[in-house]
Nucleic acid binder design. Structure first.
Lengths: 201, 201
DNA sequence: GCAAAAATCAAACGTTTGTTTGCAATTTTG
DNA sequence: CAAAATTGCAAACAAACGTTTGATTTTTGC
């Protein structure tokens, strides 16, 4: 009884697809007509087996459309991190206008998506640290940085990615690019630390 | 009519939670008792408003439990790509033992997860191309490559990442690292092309 | 080839559930 | 304050749906 056969797979596939397409589960009769069986009893028959195998779960008796996928079928946990478009002076970073969408990330980057965001890198100022133009960097919100951290800081009316140092009461924003020079400031607004990046070739 | 008020928010929250907990949507009456209203008509009233605002979607008339969240609420679509641990000679790459888990990726890397996999990079042979040790690279399965592609090839009993060239009937696997030299072969088994990477600092 | 098991069906039944209607209470607005 | 809009209720209807039963067909194992 542990084996899965064609029809069972059909039912399972259909339920998955239907859920993906509609956001709610199919009814028994919808499954019937989808996989080409004429009796709802046959469908029940398969559903019972799929439940026994642990592929699906069914709600309490008589609840309409109460089929759900079990965890081993459900997509694994992941983070959904806001991808910020442009950073402009004045407008708060996380204003809706700046939001380009949400980006899925594995949980290894954090436990909650609350303190993470992403930013598209413009420029070559960090190429020696392996951060290239158009990379999407993953940033953990914080206003504090330690020496050597790669940070996103507010500078010159926009966000900039640099390596951070504090020396003799001055802040040094160091570009990892031998053709560029350090930015030295009295104070700086730090948006977060760079925790990772995603690149598309 | 564009504003959301407490009760509407309650309904919306409940629907979201219910969907998360059960995998299928609540019925109108369940919403009623959850948020403490006694008439199903009142619930319809809120559901209609939420639908007008675009927060939820409702299925065709009379379909039971056909509430779904709209895309701005739904977790966006994403890919679930297998992350391969070690590549060993003999064992098929996609053997279960080699599978370290699944990794979420945005859909910009492909439409289906079928032809993608990921690999953890070991070594420094591609640092000049911005691929570092311990990076996770995203690979599209293919056995054909064009000049200049960064490929994953089977070489020396394992997978190696190199830039690919074909010249005078020879295959050149070129490491992007000035301290390493080209590998020249008569033939090579290509596993795929590198499409992107994910790095964790 | 035959008996047992598995798969499928049609039909009917009772529940759950979406929908509607009409009216009352409350809040907002001019 | 009166009119209008909003919010709420109870009740009843009809549609969609899950479930069950018992029979029929198909497959399987010997």
């Amino acid at each position: 009884m542990k084996k899965i056969n064609d029809k069972m797979q059909c039912v399972l596939d259909f339920v998955e697809d239907y859920l993906n397409d509609n956001g709610f589960p199919p009814s028994v009769r919808e499954i019937c007509s989808a996989i080409g069986i004429k009796s709802t009893a046959s469908c029940q028959y398969y559903l019972k087996k799929l439940e026994q195998r642990g592929d699906i779960k069914r709600g309490p008796e008589n609840k309409k459309r109460s089929i759900s996928l079990t965890d081993n079928k459900k997509t694994e946990k992941f983070l959904s991190v806001p991808l910020i478009g442009t950073v402009t002076a004045g407008v708060p970073i996380f204003a809706y206008e700046n939001l380009e969408g949400y980006y899925p990330l594995p949980t290894e980057f954090g436990n909650s998506d609350d303190d993470l965001f992403m930013l598209k890198v413009k420029g070559e100022s960090m190429i020696d640290a392996g951060i290239y133009n158009d990379d999407k960097i993953i940033i953990q919100k914080t206003d504090y940085a330690e020496n050597g951290d790669i940070v996103v800081a507010f500078f010159d009316d926009g966000a900039t990615v640099k390596r951070f140092f504090r020396k003799n009461d001055k802040i040094i924003l160091h570009p990892e690019n031998s053709s560029m020079s350090d930015i030295i400031l009295d104070d700086v607004k730090i948006l977060g630390k760079v925790k990772g990046l995603v690149r598309k070739f």
